[in-house]
Design a protein around this nucleic acid. Structure first.
Lengths: 150, 150
DNA sequence: CTTTGACAGTTGATTTTGTAACTATCAAGA
DNA sequence: TCTTGATAGTTACAAAATCAACTGTCAAAG
């Protein structure tokens, strides 16, 4: 009949995700004025090279409205350009501009620094356990393969 | 120069937290019309017995505005009552009503079922790793001791 | 051709969240 | 007493997320 919130998996995960996200946010927020969807679209597009909004959404696990607005903001900033796919004019093919690539390159180093700062507080065993645990959960939640939107 | 979003800790955690939260949400959402802050306040208050809004916020790691609104909603529902602490009239001491306790009791079983469904998809090693990893991260992010707000 | 259903992406409306200011109360001290 | 600064909690406003509807395009069926 008793229940402990602190031991409850969804609670523990949400709270850790918030703390960790908050810990890295200043890098893209304070220094570049980006929000999280924009940062994620940037990272996804840097990784994919060229991609449509749908592909970016799948690759960064974000709903298409978030992706659409993030793309618009990055376009205003001249960090990406779009062109219509001539073979299917519904698709907008996106690509980072040089300033976009430079912006992204300037972000990843400090992002990694903050991530590493967390890892360094973990023991070697904990670090190993972390990867095992996250990989297992990703499989358990069916996040290995492609994800539609959400 | 390369960067992989899928391997980035904040991204992995946020995405897992969302998936896991989504997996348990129907229990309090569909069946009882509660939202997450309300569910958390309920669980915190059930655990604490009697508490102030501030204590609930600390115990459930939520900002005081979320707590305030959740308390208001649960009060409307007659699941909790408040009385002013006579020794310090700034404090509102909160307590679950009998319907509130019954509601909470009805929630925890199906919540646990959903949590267990996730654990069952993990190997024994992964389950152990999960607890080691989360505990380590909680310590790394200073979430062991008391948390102020948020 | 024209209709139908599906898909890509955008936009507007609603709801939720976060930030900051505010009210009320208290304790400590001038 | 009368400030002063702190704390508990609420509320107003702004920012963000969610949901639903919409536009334009396509391929396939008739």
């Amino acid at each position: 009949m008793s229940f402990s919130l602190e031991a409850f998996l969804p609670y523990r995960l949400t709270r850790l995700a918030e703390a960790v996200s908050l810990h890295v946010r200043p890098v893209y927020k304070e220094a570049f004025g980006l929000n999280r969807p924009e940062w994620r679209v940037l990272a996804a597009l840097a990784d994919l090279g060229e991609a449509t909004a749908t592909e970016i959404g799948r690759h960064s696990t974000q709903h298409k409205t978030k992706v659409s607005r993030a793309i618009h903001a990055l376009e205003q900033r001249r960090w990406l350009v779009r062109r219509t796919d001539p073979s299917d004019r519904r698709h907008e093919i996106l690509r980072l501009t040089e300033p976009g690539k430079r912006g992204f390159a300037a972000l990843i180093a400090p992002m990694r620094v903050r991530e590493t700062a967390i890892f360094e507080k973990l023991s070697l065993e904990e670090r190993r356990a972390l990867d095992v645990a996250l990989s297992g959960l990703e499989r358990a939640m069916d996040m290995d393969g492609a994800r539609e939107d959400f």
